[in-house]
Amino acid sequence: MMRLRFVPAGESAVMALAEGDLEQRAAHLRGILAALDGAPPPHLVDAIPTDDTMLLLYDPLRTTAVEIETYVSSLALPAPVEDSESRLKEIPVLYGGEMGVDLGRVAAFAGVSESEVVELHVQTEYIVRFLGFMPGFPYLGPLPDRLTTPRHETPRTIVPAGSVAIAEDQTSIYPVASPGGWNLIGRTPCRLFDPREYPPSMLLPGDRVRFRPVDHAEYSRIHFEILAGQR
């Protein structure tokens, strides 16, 4: 059985640290999150997972870190889901041009052509490691080594919603317009975050993701279908 270590994070939260290799830790934490969803301990307020940690926030007037730790450690975890069985999401992307103004920069860092960057980006299957930074923002990996590109030193004041981007060894999609320093290589018409739905995020930790290149016509068609509520 996988073990967890706990570190206090103030009087209202405790950090659970998973041990083992990256894949084991991620699978373990996804199992815990699923189990907590089904049967949360009393007075747990929130649970925020990353690659190898889960922040457990609780009401300190009604429970204690020890009670939360005991509960989480004794959870009967569901059998680990094989990655091949988890949800596969396909994300249509219009690469380059004004939709992906940094495609050339990424190509220059990689020493390949822009179309080779697109090829590398779409031929990889990614795992949603966790969501953070802003509502519905997925941290996707692993990115092909070739595509590793540093962030912009000065972030842009506005990155449009739907921007598909690369920073360091990660790739992601901006669900809403925001300031950002990632390299923009394309844009998807998909709505990644919709607070009227539950879950509000289209992508969830553990999901598999593939990007599919589309042209202007298909991008527009999908965009209008989404606006019209047809998908």
Binding site: D51, T53, L55, G132, F133
Partner: peptide, 26 residues
């Protein structure tokens, strides 16, 4: 390590100037 941020965290970025993270924190 990248991890969840508790409300009220005193965060120390690379420049050493602390930031108190409040309700609209990431």
């Amino acid at each position: 390590r990248t991890e969840g941020v508790p409300l009220g965290a005193v965060q120390v970025p690379a420049d050493g100037a602390p930031i108190l993270l409040l309700p609209d924190r990431q």
